[in-house]
Design a protein around this nucleic acid. Structure first.
Lengths: 309, 309
DNA sequence: GTTAAACATGACAAGTAATGGCATGATTAA
DNA sequence: TTAATCATGCCATTACTTGTCATGTTTAAC
């Protein structure tokens, strides 16, 4: 076996063990101790942070955590990585922040000048916009950790009705529109609710969870329609155009031959509050035929507005 | 110099040149041709896709594009990369799609089992939610290319008032809420407008641009207030809560001692259409004091609703 | 069809690097 | 004091790398 290959094998061996003696390596690879000492000098030269403790019970200790075998990237692949990083730029709170910074440096410094220019251009010509929030989510990493470790937590939460203590089982976290959300099973309400990570004021305690809950992906797919209700709306041409831009209606907008259209679908009653402002904006571009509750809600809100002003 | 170092130097040399002869390498590194042949066998063993053409004008050709020197990542760094990729998951159209797939494979396959589990967990416990759009943006990569290369383009665009041909200078592209947007200088309207990349039906022609335009970052920072207007609103406690969640008002919401609050700021008249539905939803939680146009707009829309139903 | 430029491969001697063994010393815990 | 550990030097042996030369093969150009 070539020396380079053997060195890498030893690199993997020692970064995995973290603490080891020269004798252990010699036994593992059937080489002499003298050679092991020499190899360790080579690894140090390669930049592996390693230190030795002398005397009985001494040995070597590797400072970095486990390393991957060296990977050869093409320039395009490196560029695509910077593109991926670009999508994280607008987030204020992020887990893995320090690691991403170190990867960025490692990659950027190994690029040739031409590729550096390309990366810089990507940075200035492409962006993933999210509202630049000033809201901090200090418990993001903790909450993520607890959900990965399948633990229940007690949290102090700033809800609509004031400060509350909640006993929840976190399902996962997701970012949307610059904010971090936490779907979690609420043991008091006995159902899954959606929390905002920035509104968590503290984590009081955590305990291992026994139950099995859905994961984040399942939660995204899962939309229980508890109170099905028919939504039936006629749309003008402009109404179609606007509704097609609303992800919620993606796929349900039907265009007819005369260029008008309609939406005719089943939704959950709880979602009416969410779509009401939408139809307010559409005004006469959308004529709601069903449900009556939506029409009444719109009327009520319209009357409230007219009473106010 | 050690063999490993020399092999890497040659690797860089040949991946940059793409096509070369053994003699060229021999001259460059002052080694014999025989050795070059031997080195090339080593590079093949390392997995470099390279083939030889025999005969006069023959030589070697490297199939992959330029490679970076091998990079050592820590396991945490690799995990953070998967985290970054996660943020691209909900996008339907992406440039660099193939590269990201190949990087993902390279990295994942080099992970140890334990780390693979960690990555899988991240994938199932953290997400960057964006509406799953079915809308395709086939010209995304082209438009990006043209803006990087500082070119003007003629496009067919599906606008509010139908199919139109536009002569524009693209400034860059950005993703928001699952859609790709293109701010661009419109040569007919003589100002910067915002286009949706999915509404571009074709790119008719392109020519080198002479002018200097702002870049994407500048455009984000730039918000010309052409027709300044005062927005002055009183908010209830719930009104404050809701407005604080609206990025547009981030920082302008003031809370008073009695737990009510207000917004008092200068905005552009053109933005009224955008904030109108917001105040409709807030209803009596927000009492608009100024501008009159906003109140009138709300009243008009409310009357339209009441006339309809 | 001959020639020149390229790759492909083998043999071998000379040179270089890596290895193992041994010796010595330093440091530390038992 | 002893045993376990790292640190380092020396040297003979072994293994590898290199350059030179020789021999083939393939292909384009003349």
């Amino acid at each position: 076996m070539s020396k380079a290959k053997r060195l890498l094998d030893i690199l993997m061996f020692v970064t995995t063990k973290r603490k080891f003696t020269a004798q252990e390596v010699a036994d593992e690879f059937h080489i002499s101790i003298r050679t092991v000492h020499r190899y360790i000098i080579d690894l140090c030269d390669m930049g592996l942070p390693i230190y030795a403790e002398q005397g009985r019970n001494g040995g070597y200790t590797v400072l970095t955590s486990r390393l991957l075998p060296p990977i050869l990237f093409t320039e395009e692949e490196a560029v695509s990585l910077f593109f991926a990083f670009q999508s994280l730029n607008f987030y204020h709170s992020l887990p893995f922040d320090t690691e991403i910074t170190s990867v960025t440096h490692k990659l950027y410094s190994s690029l040739q000048n031409e590729a550096k220019i390309k990366v810089d251009k990507i940075r200035s010509f492409i962006s993933f916009w999210n509202p630049k929030r000033t809201i901090d989510a200090p418990f993001l990493k903790d909450v993520l950790e607890h959900s990965i470790e399948n633990r229940n937590i007690h949290i102090q939460y700033e809800s609509k009705s004031g400060l509350k203590t909640k006993h929840i089982h976190p399902i996962g976290v997701y970012a949307h529109d610059g904010l971090w959300y936490l779907p979690a099973y609420d043991y008091d309400k006995e159902k899954i609710l959606l929390y905002r990570v920035d509104r968590i004021l503290s984590i009081l305690s955590a305990e291992k969870s026994e139950g099995e809950y859905m994961n984040l992906e399942e939660w995204f797919d899962y939309h229980e329609i508890k109170k099905p209700i028919r939504l039936h709306v006629h749309l003008t041409k402009e109404g179609i155009r606007q509704c097609k831009s609303v992800p919620y209606f993606d796929g349900t907008v039907v265009t007819q031959e005369d260029e008008t259209g309609y939406i005719d679908t089943i939704i959950d009653k709880g979602e009416l509050g969410f779509i009401k402002p939408l139809f307010f904006r559409l005004g006469s571009h959308a004529r709601i035929l069903e449900p009556k509750e939506l029409i009444d809600g719109l009327r009520k809100q319209a009357e409230e507005i007219l009473t106010m002003y």
